[in-house]
Design a protein around this nucleic acid. Sequence first.
DNA 1: GCTTGACCTTGACGCTGCGTCAACCCTCCA
DNA 2: TGGAGGGTTGACGCAGCGTCAAGGTCAAGC
Lengths: 259, 259
Amino acid sequence: MLTISQLAAYAGVTVRAVRHYHQIGLLPEPERDASGYRRYSAGAVVSLIRIRILANAGVPLSQIGQMLEADASTFAAAVEEIDRQLGDEIARLEASRKQIAQLAAGDRLALAPEVITYLDRLRDIGVSERVVAGERDSWILMSARWPDRVREWMPGKIAQLDDPQLVRLYRILSEIFESDTGDDALLVEAADILASLAEQAYRSGEIDLGEVAQDDLPFDLLDALAVESDSRVQRLLDLMRERGWDGLARLERLAEPST
Amino acid sequence: MLTISQLAAYAGVTVRAVRHYHQIGLLPEPERDASGYRRYSAGAVVSLIRIRILANAGVPLSQIGQMLEADASTFAAAVEEIDRQLGDEIARLEASRKQIAQLAAGDRLALAPEVITYLDRLRDIGVSERVVAGERDSWILMSARWPDRVREWMPGKIAQLDDPQLVRLYRILSEIFESDTGDDALLVEAADILASLAEQAYRSGEIDLGEVAQDDLPFDLLDALAVESDSRVQRLLDLMRERGWDGLARLERLAEPST
DNA sequence: GCTTGACCTTGACGCTGCGTCAACCCTCCA
DNA sequence: TGGAGGGTTGACGCAGCGTCAAGGTCAAGC
């Protein structure tokens, strides 16, 4: 007769594992000797090894009992199911691995390469780091919901940077948010340019977001994010409202311009 | 300001997950409103999304906090470590998948094909199912500890089945254990053949187990297993002892034969 | 003002497969 | 006879939430 540690050693498992199998009813409790020790027969070793064979194959303990008793076809069906689950799990882990490979490639925020390019272009034209960081956070938000759409939008966004008016706008914004003073004249100038750009876009019908339902887009959230990062954005919003436009991330016409 | 469910929806996670992140200190608790509800800023959405990006890449929650604060080289090192762990996990699952594929291939006990062949040969020469089952359990025990050694031993075992004496022995054993009567004459005959075979093996020095330390092999366990399955095995052991041999799975000379 | 349903709160258990104390008993050997 | 090295049960811990339970709150319709 064997003690629990001998049994465990023969089967190549830990004593704790054996007791666990008893607890969940997978391995029957053996007789006890006079002092209360469990005493195992040689057959228990075989039972335990068979349990481990299935467990090592990835079968959940909760199913092993049934599988050991099942007939061939039931067994085969169960095996197939387990294999499917293992396959799913492997697929999930490999997806994770792809993700992490992207992170390793220096793309610490997991933004699409197109967005990274866009942010770099902003830096090239002299946009300050704070404003770039704001843009980045906005695109993180957008990418979370429409990773594919964002990639489609980027070429257009990058092309827009050729517009001298837009470049001027970004430079003014950089100047505003880089300084700690509240130079309202600059804010007014920014609002004027922004209104002008919005007007052009509105006339040319350029505002085109593809098939994304516009209510679905978190423009309010983007505006709120901007205001959070710097309260002077609120002033900009107010100035835009005076000029007949609502919002910032997505300008919406409030009323026809009086002029 | 956002409620917890709005925050969760923006980031594509469950409310429960957000609360969990608060609990483990991964996401800071926001201010509460008058009624005790959590109220989130837009920045929280960005924070949460960044957490999920890392979590989806397989980073354990317990490390995400540090990673978000880490510098580039620390971050890269951590990423590499995570990737290694993912690789290990995938390897383990794929090993499981191979195992289960073997099970699916009809090999329900995960015995090496050589052993299956051996058991089939036993059936071919007329060995009863009970005796084959006993052999099978023995080989399960052996395979658990020396899967590779067992495969090497099998060709020799199969070759031995050409010996008419051995065939006769197996047939007698089958007859004994298939009947419920206690025909002692058959047991005596079996013991005589076994002793004769042992003598031959002893003389030719054939007993060769390779480099396996012999104390390491569970011969006592195998004998015990046999006795458990049928108590008449005990009588066989006694008869062998009378003939100067100890054990059954591994015969050991007790004394030089008097003849 | 009342109901209703949707949303918020904290607290706690469940899941998987054991690892790891804790606190105590049993056996064997020098 | 004392200590080392077994054994026993009981319980917490782990990862990442899901899922009640037992309420309090809010907005809307009657």
